[in-house]
Computed example of a mutant assay.
Amino acid sequence: MNTEAVAKRLVELCRTGQYEQAQRELYADDAVSIEPVWAPPGAIGNAEGLPAIYEKGRKFAEGIEEFHGASCGDPVIAADWFSVAMGMDATFKGMGRVNMQEICVYRVRDGKIVHEQFFYSAD
């Protein structure tokens, strides 16, 4: 798949809440996942390699007490990179309800996502 096809498939899966399916289908075995350096307390942190990314997703899901909704915009594509605006409204253990908005940036190599990085505010 080219970058555009990967981006569209990721958005399709995310819009239906199939995050782990997206990782299994679209991510390279050596993919990395990067959070902001200043990520808030309780944030899962960075992950290197697909097994670590799966675990990061599971830990994130375990921290949610109640899920209220999510959004996923259309991808913006530039060569082997793309970005997507995403949002999540959830009540997190020990943090209360958070309406999180972020920009997610991805790099594609050989038809697979090799890099994801998240940009969001802590307030």
Rank of each mutant, 00 (worst) to 15 (best):
A28T: 01
Y120I: 09
E62V: 00
A52P: 05
Y27M: 08
G57W: 01
F92W: 10
P51K: 03
R24P: 00
Q101G: 05
G42K: 12
I77D: 03
V32N: 04
I103H: 14
E20K: 14
E66P: 00
W38K: 12
E102Q: 15
E25I: 08
G63M: 02
G17K: 05
D123S: 10
K59Q: 14
E25D: 14
I77M: 06
F92D: 00
S83I: 04
A122F: 15
E48W: 08
P36Q: 01
C104E: 07
N2A: 02
Q21D: 10
A47K: 03
V98S: 07
D74P: 01
A39P: 01
Q101E: 15
I77C: 07
K112N: 07
M100I: 14
T3K: 12
L50P: 01
P51N: 13
K56I: 00
P75G: 08
F82A: 04
L13M: 05
K59A: 08
K59Y: 11
A5P: 03
E66A: 13
V32A: 08
P41V: 08
L10K: 02
A39E: 01
V11N: 11
V76P: 01
E55V: 00
Q21I: 09
G17H: 12
A28R: 03
G45K: 08
I44W: 02
V84C: 08
G69M: 09
V105A: 01
I103G: 09
G111P: 05
Q21P: 04
D80V: 00
L50Y: 11
I34S: 09
G17A: 06
G94S: 03
Y27I: 01
E25Q: 15
V105I: 15
A78Q: 07
N46G: 15
N46Y: 02
F82N: 03
F60Y: 14
Q18I: 02
V32E: 10
A90G: 07
G49D: 04
Y19H: 13
D123H: 15
S33P: 00
N46D: 15
N46L: 09
T91K: 15
R24W: 11
G63W: 01
E102A: 13
I103D: 01
S83A: 14
Y27T: 05
V105D: 00
F92H: 13
K8D: 03
P75F: 07
Q101K: 15
L10M: 12
S33F: 04
M100K: 11
V84Q: 04
A39H: 06
A5C: 04
R109H: 11
A5H: 10
E62L: 11
Q23E: 02
Q21H: 08
A31H: 06
Y106V: 05
C14Y: 12
A39N: 10
M95T: 07
P36F: 11
I64W: 08
F118C: 08
R24T: 10
N2G: 15
A22W: 00
N99R: 15
F67H: 14
A52N: 14
E35F: 15
P41G: 13
Y106I: 00
I77H: 06
K8I: 01
T16Y: 04
A31N: 04
C72R: 09
K59L: 10
S83G: 13
Y27A: 10
W38C: 03
Q18P: 06
E55H: 07
V114L: 11
I44C: 12
Y19W: 11
E65G: 10
G111V: 05
E48G: 09
P36N: 12
M88K: 12
R15I: 03
D30S: 14
G42L: 09
A61R: 13
